[in-house]
Design a protein around this nucleic acid. Sequence first.
DNA 1: ATGGTAGAGCATCTA
Length: 269
Amino acid sequence: MRIATWNVNSLNARMPRVEQWLADVRPDVLCMQETKLADSGFPAMAFEAMGYESVHHGDGRWNGVAILSRIGLTDPLVGFEPGLEPDTDTRLVSATCGGVRVTSVYVPNGRSVDDPHYQYKLSWLGRLRSHLDTTCRTDGKVVVCGDFNIAPEDIDVWDPTAFIGSTHVTAPERDALAAVREWGLVDTFRQRYDGVEGLYSYWDYTAGRFHKRQGMRIDYLLASAPLAERSTVDLVDRNARKGTKPSDHAPVIAGYDVDAEDAEDAEDA
DNA sequence: ATGGTAGAGCATCTA
């Protein structure tokens, strides 16, 4: 099973590229972030014509997350589980796809460490941990993926000294991310490429960052142990960041050596 | 000198 995550930075602007990419790569599941669409504008029919069921959570100008699946899509849940403070700005959506509980997340940016949005980012990550605590089992097949807006380690940014005092690399952000991971999730990409520098998923549009290979690894797939133990592949599709009108993020793909289960067998996931 | 570019939408806000 192959699952991909891609911050498309406006699905309206990116639809031709997303359709081409789906036709070329045919992942079983694609999680998207920053669709910048209301639910009413989400092109579910176009994806259905390509064999993908979908669920979208968005309210218009900003954010917006989605899951596409060609191996079944059941039990969709938009936002956090009902017991928690609501996901008011549409940054989280979940669904069960082929026996895997998949969550697509767009973690708040934080803006700057002295901005209220930074505290919102930390509390949002705390809610994500609570959401996992109450809706998923650590011994089930669970993937939480998306744009986390956090570089887990200094090796995940092109120049750590360029980020001193900035968001995405601070200890509180990394601690909040670690608390999510410690629920029972593994960053298989970094496990596979332990110590390897220069592996990024995002490059700022400005200053020719992509061509200078000056990026950050802020998009990833976190897998529960039953999946992480069967990890087969992790990669970034840098080609999707090239050419005309690319997103500033590239798709990240993970593979797991598990068969898609029927929906009725997914209850224990 | 707080730069640069992209997207939404039409003045800025977000990233």
